[in-house]
Design a protein around this nucleic acid. Structure first.
Lengths: 224, 224
DNA sequence: GCAAAAGTGTTAGGAGTACACCCATGC
DNA sequence: GCATGGGTGTACTCCTAACACTTTTGC
């Protein structure tokens, strides 16, 4: 393989992550505002060019940190995007990830070398995005929805104690769908993913609700 | 983004496809033998470097054609592989695909500019592979198994008429699992994917079996 | 007529879904 | 005491899984 063959010269790799959170029943995604051309002033997902000395996932996490200050996030690769013209600068193939984090537990850095702002956007109020990030975000959301019903990916949102009505509202926000209280509880408990803490707390209601927490399981199961 | 920044200079993209077939109840994958360094003389999956003027999937299909002569194959992207040292020549990220084709209906080109041989290998008798293709193949097989139970991906193996015992043997080969004849037939028919042709033919048994064929559906359903 | 594979129906258990009433608290 | 959300059980349906005997053909 010759490095200077024009057929495959000047190629590069983007690592892009759609970071989701849920606030008060609203699913949101983290966007950052570009400071430089191309797409100067446009909002995009966190990400950037992969370095030669890092593996894909490490690069994606480094980019997340550089653009938002977020550390300690677990991410999952879901697809590569590679249309010829997806970047106007040179041929770039994007490896896309999703991540879930509790926005109330992190402090987002608003401005960096390459970005002039950063914020959480409700997924039904997304501005026009730079590059092909609208397409990536659309598929990221579908992937998140498929993951939420088979894995404990929501553990990132509920690292500690939570009530069942509370987590149900999160499921409903992400899946955009309502569940029967009794059936939801029955199903969730039958999965052996969460355990009773024998404590109570309050969510929205007047009556205190039982507090549960995720077990330290790694199993992946069908949820809904 | 500066093209000559050492951090991301000299990167490239591989498009790699694991092409599967099933012959007489044995799941096989197409491998080609490398003619040049690196990994000269090693078997690998079909694939190679993406060109600047082609989309990912087009590149994967071009590589399949160049290395094997196969055309008219439908493929599906399943994962990107990007360990820093996965290629000894330069930094290459691989976008990996699976495909299914009926080996009895295609004539494989044995030798090309870059390969000295090509053949179908039973998946439990794979030689050591070059690059990270053993890892890619392992994940490709898992992905194929997940797809076979939710889609009509097997249509590629049975474009025309087939008997139910015949296609059952194919499911069993790929999933490495036996099914009850009655339940298999019931389930497959209930999916509304295949239809009776009112003809009979023979597979292995003495008694002629009914012939079915895939409908022209595009739906994707849960099979097993 | 016998070996070999094809074809067929029933039952029991588990999962999903639909649905209504009482309970604990704040005000 | 009443409004608000939390907690619980039952019945029906559907899907899955287990299981045995008869039929058609080639030899």
């Amino acid at each position: 393989m010759k490095k200077n063959n024009a057929l495959y010269k000047n190629q590069g790799i983007h690592v892009i992550t759609a970071i989701f959170t849920v606030e008060f029943g609203i699913t949101k995604v983290l966007l950052v505002k570009r400071k430089n051309e191309p797409y100067k002033g446009d909002w995009i997902l966190t990400g950037g060019a992969l370095y030669n000395n890092e593996d894909l996932e490490d690069g994606a996490k480094r980019e997340i940190f550089e653009k938002s200050g977020i550390t300690d996030i677990s991410i999952e690769q879901f697809k590569a995007f590679g249309k010829v013209d997806r970047s106007p600068v040179m041929r770039m193939v994007a490896i896309a990830y999703i991540g879930v984090i509790d926005s109330s537990r992190v402090k987002i850095i608003r401005e960096t070398n390459n970005t002039s702002n950063a914020d959480w956007f409700p997924i039904d109020k997304i501005p026009g995005l730079g590059f092909d990030h609208e397409e990536i975000l659309k598929e990221a959301l579908l992937y998140l929805q498929s993951k939420i019903v088979t894995t404990d990916i929501l553990k990132a949102l509920f690292p500690n104690e939570f009530t069942i009505p509370e987590i149900q509202k999160t499921y409903e926000a992400i899946l955009n769908k309502k569940f029967d209280r009794r059936n939801f509880r029955k199903k969730l408990l039958s999965l052996d993913l969460i355990e009773d803490t024998n404590k109570t707390g309050k969510f929205e209601g007047k009556k205190p609700a039982k507090l549960y927490k995720f077990k330290d399981t790694i199993e992946s199961k069908k949820v809904f």
